[in-house]
Each structure stands twice: as structure tokens, then as C-alpha cells.
Design a protein around this nucleic acid. Sequence first.
DNA 1: TGTACATCAGTGAACGCGCGTTCACTGATGTAC
DNA 2: TGTACATCAGTGAACGCGCGTTCACTGATGTAC
Lengths: 239, 239
Amino acid sequence: MDGKATTARERARIEITAEILAAARVRLSQHGPGQLSLRAVSRDVGMVSSAVYRYFRSRDDLLTALLIEAYNELGAAAEDADAAVGNRSAYLERWTATCTAIRTWAISHPGDYALLYGSPVPGYAAPQDTIPAATRVTIVLVRIVLDAHADGATVRPPPPLTPKSLGKTLAGALEFIKTLDAPPAAQDPEVALHTIAAWSAIFGTISFELFGHLVGSVSDYDAYYEQVLIRLADDLGLA
Amino acid sequence: MDGKATTARERARIEITAEILAAARVRLSQHGPGQLSLRAVSRDVGMVSSAVYRYFRSRDDLLTALLIEAYNELGAAAEDADAAVGNRSAYLERWTATCTAIRTWAISHPGDYALLYGSPVPGYAAPQDTIPAATRVTIVLVRIVLDAHADGATVRPPPPLTPKSLGKTLAGALEFIKTLDAPPAAQDPEVALHTIAAWSAIFGTISFELFGHLVGSVSDYDAYYEQVLIRLADDLGLA
DNA sequence: TGTACATCAGTGAACGCGCGTTCACTGATGTAC
DNA sequence: TGTACATCAGTGAACGCGCGTTCACTGATGTAC
């Protein structure tokens, strides 16, 4: 069992695990998180429901695996979109490309998106294992901001009311930013605040679109989203 | 039946309808939309499940009534918070008070909030009846922006890339704004864009907090939210 | 004011459904000698 | 290379559960005369 010679059983196990996950993803994309059940997935994959227990200890385990896979897929989409921009100093372009990729992914995987960013699934609490996957997309966005600020970008001076304690409020975020080798210029509560706010705004905008809150107000979601992105980038000092 | 002399039956009907709704709201606040079922509500209210059908034609009817009640409660909270600001020209104060009231309501009614702004309930589509109630909170926010812009507030000039078609993209929103007797200065796609974006950002921020996406980044949600509000107000030209 | 009938609220049993999970089983795959 | 045993994937029945909805019923409230 030195990892080289995989038996037929081992190969089958990996393949079927993937097959179950894929079936669950399809169900999720076509029917939403509410319709996702272990039995439904087992039916889709052509197994008896109890057989799935050979691959996932419980429904919650399956959910966790799904969350991780979906987060990773979204994260990869964001990473790829950013990486595809040749001019690494075109921060606005990187920002727009990344955010557009995020929305594109969300629209083509509405069920997954609802699972990740909609109301939490009742009776299920995501374990710590999902964090690294969940963080990938965030890192892409933050990295663009950090790169821009290493290159002289600035955020508008804060309004007069900013309390001294803002750094403490965002200590976790600032710590996280340090992890990413942030330039000193970006290790600033004001930059962190704008970044977190922009991050929330992006997902708020996508959620409003997908969950139907913009019906009647916005007729061209593509155009709307692009303009929102540009304003957010402007706010972050990207160009 | 001239509406004056209500019979005991009629009074009872109104009271019990309200009682059922109240029980459903309690369930919602304590267990979330996933745990909301007609049977559970009937149990809470001490009735047999079939009896609820005397008051609501179906589960979907009950859901609709709940949505309307919750939207109205949120709308009223926002309206009250705005109205409580004596100086009607203190737009930043009105904005902050209103947005704070929205978040306060959301936090004390997380289940209702998830029902209104989280992932849609599977198999349920909200009917048109919910629109007026849903719009109330939006009107409060928009009204503050409109008042400020009638009073000389301005939004920063848009970045160079703004397309001519932005007005068409936001035609619905501009139409809606006209309904509210918007001053000419505010009948501007750029103002509309900033307003819708701010509206989405507020609910995105609240959702991120309630749905757990800020865990680890933000330690003091009150302080964080207040600073986000101030930046949004700044962006909208409020002061 | 009293009686006869109509309306309606609430009961309790039943329908068919899907769910997560357990368990004893069969039969195929892998391993040790 | 062949045999004996251990491991494991998948089956099918069963468990107890909660769900939305229907239906014939009882008994109270309302209405017309």
C-alpha cells in the first residue's frame, strides 16, 4: 500500500465518491439546497440510499464535501480570472475580471451559490474544514487590493467620525492581511474596512440579483453589475 | 354586515388568525425558515393541523402572510427610526438611524430576515401581494437620498467608463424614484446606481454578519456596521 | 322570545409521500500462505 | 498457481419520523321567521 499500486477497489472508491458528489452538485444546481437529500442523490446516481453510507458517514458529511467542492470551484474561477490578466498592474481590470467571474459562476450554479451564501441549512453547522476553501475567493479579491496599494493606490481619507478603535474591530482582518504579505501601506484599518465592505457589497449585489430583489429596478444585470464594480474599484483606489 | 357590528365569530376569526401568524413568527425567529411547517405552527398554537386550513388555504398562503407581516414590521421599524430624527436635514443622521434600525430588526428576527433576504424557500414563489410591504423599507432609504439631493447633495462624478445606456439599465428604478416625487437633481442614473448599490450593500453586510461570513475578520459588528454606513453615506453625498 | 335551519370552527383519522439511518444479507475483490 | 479466509461494496427491507392535505364528523354560533 505504498500509494503507487492502487487496487481496482481503491480506484473504484475514488471514482464513485466523485460520481456521488457530481450528482449532488447537479441536483443542487437544478433544484436548490432545499431539495438536496441523501436519498435523492443516491437515486440520481443509481444506487440504493444505504450504499451512499459506504462513501459518506452521514448527510452532513456529504454536505461538507459539497461545500468544500463548491467553494473550491468558485475560488478557482476567481483565481483563473485574475491570473488571466496579463498586465499585473492593471488593478481595475483584475478586479473587474475577478468579480465578473464570481458572478458568472454564481449565475451558472445558483443552487451552490445559495448553499454557500444564502441562509444556512437548518440543523447543519459547517465544520472548520470548509474554511480554507471558503477563503480562496476572498484572498483573490484582497490580493488585488493589496497589490494596488503596494503600488501607490490610496483610499479616500475617512470621514471625521472614525474611532481609534477601528483597528481593534478589524483585528482579525488585519491579521489575515498580514498573512498575505501585505505592504505596509495596506496594513491600515481604513483599507481593511473598504475591502471587507466591498467584498460584502459584491456578494450582496449578486444575492439581490439571484434572490429576486432587483426585479423591477434593474433591467440589465450585466451592465448594472459592471457599473457597481467600477464604483467599488474607484472606492478602493484601484485603477 | 356593515362592518360595525362584528359578531363573536368574526372577532374570534381575526384573533385566531393573528395568533397563528404570531406563533409562526415565533417559530421562525427561533428555528429559521427551514423548520417552519404548517403542522409545527398548529402544534405551537394548540390546534390540530387540519384546523389551520380554516384560516389559511395552504402552507403557501401562510408563508405569504408571514412574508407580508415581516416586511411590514421591518418597514415600520425603518420608518419609525427615520421619523424620530427631528432635524429632517440631518441626512447622515437619518441614514444612520434607519440603517441601524434595519440591522437591529434583522438581528432580533434572524429567522424572518433569512426568510426575506436569504435563499428563496424551495417550491414557493412570492406572489405580487408582497411587493408593497417589501418596498416600504426601500422607500425609507431612497427618500433620505432624495431629500438630501433636493438639498444640494451630490454624488461624486462617475468614472470615465459610464455608458450612455445606464439610464435604460436602471429605467425601473428611475421610474420608481419619480413615483416618490424625486427632485430633478436626483433623477439621475448615477444617483440611482449609487442608491441601489448602497441598498444591496446594506443587506449584503447584514447577511454576511448573520450568515457567518465575517467570523474571524470582524470582532465588533456594531462598530463595523456603523463605519460601513458612514462610508456609504459619504458615497451617497449625505452629510 | 323561541324555534328551525344554516353556517362555520375544530376534531381525529387517514392518504401518500420523502426523509436519514440501521442492519443482516450476498457476492465480488483482495490477501496470506 | 491455487486455496482459504478477510475485507468491503452494494442490496433490500425496515425503523420512526414529519410533512401537506383531505374528509366525514360533532358541536357551537349565527340567522330568519
